[in-house]
């Protein structure tokens, strides 16, 4: 139990720091919403090395922490919509043995952008934002692939370490 708590704390801190790091290097391609999603790396690791509930808690705590520290209410609603839809889709897809970590991460990345656009369209009461959807599906796919490859390598190492510790 204590080990689980420590692990959870470490992942939360890591997600928090990665969110901050990402806010320092804004990628400006003229379309709002394009980003790498480094924090999603930690959420995926939690999803695969712990359980659904832990991944959900981690994602929620991360969004609230970064929202209150670096953002404002509107950016928080944004990331909440993106983060929750993304996690929901990843949890759902992970249940079926169709995709590996990379595929799950790609869908997470794409639906993060879909969730954000939907939230922004509701807040600003305009459908015109869906104009950016093609670009954001593309950027979400690329970012999700990179994060997914990284996550699957990390997860493999993490589970290996855990197995070794338990056999000792």
């Amino acid at each position: 139990m204590a080990k689980k708590t420590a692990y959870m704390g470490m992942l939360t801190a890591l997600a928090f720091v990665l969110s901050y790091l990402e806010s320092l290097i804004p990628i400006n391609l003229g379309v709002p919403g394009i980003k790498l999603g480094l924090a999603n790396l930690v959420v995926i690791i939690a999803l695969y090395t712990m359980d659904t509930k832990m991944a959900f808690t981690l994602s929620l705590v991360r969004i609230l922490l970064t929202g209150f520290t670096f953002g404002n209410l509107s950016t928080m609603i944004y990331s909440l919509a993106g983060g929750m839809l993304s996690l929901g889709i990843m949890i759902f897809v992970k249940r079926f043995p169709v995709f590996s970590v990379t595929g799950v991460s790609v869908l997470g990345g794409v639906f993060h952008n879909v969730g954000q656009i939907a939230a922004a369209a509701l807040i600003a009461e305009t459908g015109s934002l869906f104009y950016y959807l093609p670009v954001l599906i593309f950027s979400g796919t690329i970012a999700g692939t990179l994060i997914g490859i990284l996550a699957s390598i990390l997860i493999r190492h993490l589970t290996k370490t855990e197995n070794r510790e338990q056999s000792n």
Binding site: K94, R95, F99, S100, T102, G148, T159
Partner: peptide, 14 residues
């Protein structure tokens, strides 16, 4: 998890 986690970096489906 009901299905064991698939830890391949990249599958055909991906």
């Amino acid at each position: 998890s009901a299905v064991p986690a698939d830890l391949n970096v990249m599958k055909k489906n991906d």
